[in-house]
């Protein structure tokens, strides 16, 4: 089994547990490679990848670009802070224009949920979802799970707490899919206004109290409060949010065990976590970033191999 079961990576929902393990094993190899003196491999030579970022992004875009370049792919970048629609051109038109320049793969970030699914029905190129609105962010979930695996080994049975704005978070949805497929137990914690009403349909439980959640979990993933994605106020003030759901070092010291602290970035220091926590030994935030490149190399490499099969 060395092939993925899908042509595109639009969401974790479409992956099998075998797919995820294959991505991890491939990423293990790439992680070794990128820590060698010569970090570049010729795997994707002659493959052109377009990075289409219709929404602001720094770390994901850089991470993908680095992954592509380490694989020797040719890379074109398109960034637009406004949506294509507001510029008078539809998404399909924009992408078709770029594809007519012979691009094999598209890495896309877009503000509309399902934009990658929509695009996959209209174009031939392979699509990697780099975050579509409040839907999925599959490579983030993969790198999160990969980082936990690196620290704790097999994920089966591990207890993961996801804290914050679950309602507007593509990271939460993709993480839940990924962790559940790998056998984890997952709880979410946050203001009730930011927990989807039917969250239990995803096989997760709600823990309203952060301290209790910390006592329960092996890993706490502290999501960024995304004020930009909230059209109305879901909690009174950031101050009060932090009082209830902000993670501090004394809270971690009160526990009778060590837990891992994750954050998908960028951190609002002093809101989701204090600086002390972000910079402490508990935190694997920078490991996540490093693993992001290896995971994205693995995804691109495996998808490119899919194309050979389909051709």
């Amino acid at each position: 089994m060395n092939r993925l079961s899908t042509k595109h990576l639009v969401g974790i929902k479409d992956l099998t547990p075998d797919d995820i393990h294959l991505i991890f094993e491939t990423a293990d190899n790439f992680k070794q490679i990128i820590n060698r003196p010569i970090r570049k491999v010729p795997s994707l030579r002659d493959i052109t990848i377009a990075n289409l970022f219709f929404e602001n992004s720094t770390r994901t875009r850089v991470s993908f670009e680095l992954a592509e370049k380490r694989l020797s792919a040719d890379v074109v970048n398109f960034s637009s802070s406004t949506s294509s629609v507001s510029k008078g051109e539809t998404l399909i038109d924009t992408v078709k224009n770029i594809l007519s320049m012979k691009v094999e793969m598209v890495v896309m970030r877009h503000a509309a949920p399902g934009a990658c699914v929509f695009l996959s029905k209209h174009i031939d190129a392979q699509i990697v979802n780099a975050g579509d609105g409040t839907h999925e962010h599959p490579t983030q979930a993969l790198l999160d799970a990969f980082s936990i695996r690196e620290e704790l080994g097999d994920l089966n049975g591990k207890k993961i707490l996801i804290v914050g704005d679950i309602l507007h978070s593509r990271v939460a949805l993709s993480n839940i899919y990924c962790l559940k497929k790998l056998g984890c137990q997952v709880k979410v914690c946050g203001p009730p206004t930011l927990i989807p009403r039917y969250i239990s349909a995803l096989g997760v439980e709600v823990e309203p109290n952060l301290m209790k959640g910390l006592e329960w979990c092996d890993v706490a993933n502290m999501l960024r409060i995304q004020l930009e994605r909230q059209d109305i106020r879901y909690f009174p003030t950031l101050r009060e949010y932090t009082m209830q759901y902000g993670l501090t070092l004394p809270m971690l010291e009160k526990l009778d065990k060590e837990i891992l602290i994750m954050h998908p970035g960028p951190i609002n220091r002093g809101v989701e976590v204090t600086s002390e926590v972000a910079d402490s030994d508990h935190s694997i935030i920078l490991d996540q970033v490093e693993n992001g490149v290896a995971i994205r190399m693995a995804v691109l490499y495996l998808l490119a191999a899919q194309k050979d099969v389909n051709a």
């Binding site: 949920p113 399902g114 409040t134 949805l173 969250i199 349909a201």
Partner: peptide, 18 residues
């Protein structure tokens, strides 16, 4: 609000506003 799909166990998978 801006909900465009029904709020349910089904549509939670879409990330669309419910």
């Amino acid at each position: 609000g801006e909900g465009m799909v029904n709020e349910s166990e089904t549509t939670i998978h879409t990330g669309l506003k419910q």
